Simulated scan of single mutants.
Amino acid sequence: MTTDGVAYERRSAAPVIAPVLPRKLAKVPFVELAEGRLQGVVSSGSDPARVYVSSVTTGDHGLSCNTNNNRPCGGLGGGTHPCNHIGALIEAAVAQYGLDRVTRYLKVELPEGVDDVRSALHTTTAPNRAAEVFSSFLRHLSYLELPPTTEPLPELQWFPAAGVAR
């Protein structure tokens, strides 16, 4: 790390921020706060070959939950009642990022002494973003197969370098 604190920006690997609490990767292998959504991949409880791609949008709390084969989740009550997959996603996000960061990102107002994000959502139906979220998950998985290096990654070279005028 350099004195300006941005040495990681010159490498193909970024620092890993430790989760707030340990979480079960087998249940929710992928969770992120990105693109205006809490989104991730949740394993099926009944079929080991199936996963659900779930998301909650920031602000309006739009819910989306579909299988990896793009079939709607049967437990998502009309798109406005959180299913168990979304509940597991929220729990994993709180374990990964902490309650304050998740509620701030989703713009959720929790009453004093309440820590159940799911019950505080004012939900709507969100557009299906399963393909985008699953693609992000697969892209993250592909980086796990790369050997550690300080050399630039060719597929990321289209990002402009910080502080470089173009």
Score class of each variant (00 low, 15 high):
D4Q: 04
G5A: 06
G5I: 06
V6I: 11
V6S: 12
V6T: 12
V6L: 14
E9D: 12
R10P: 11
R11A: 12
S12Q: 15
A13M: 12
A14S: 15
P15H: 11
V16G: 08
V16K: 15
I17S: 13
P19K: 13
V20Y: 01
P22N: 10
L25Y: 01
A26K: 01
K27F: 09
V28R: 00
P29G: 10
F30P: 01
V31G: 01
A34P: 04
A34K: 07
A34Q: 05
E35V: 04
R37A: 03
R37N: 13
L38C: 05
Q39P: 09
G40Q: 08
V41K: 00
V42I: 07
V42Q: 07
V42A: 05
S43P: 04
S43Y: 03
S43H: 00
S44N: 12
S44I: 00
S46N: 05
R50H: 06
V51H: 06
V51M: 08
S54L: 03
S55A: 12
S55Y: 01
S55I: 09
V56S: 09
T57K: 07
T57H: 00
T57S: 12
D60R: 13
D60Y: 02
H61V: 05
G62D: 07
L63Q: 01
S64V: 08
C65G: 10
N66W: 05
N66K: 11
T67F: 09
T67C: 04
T67K: 06
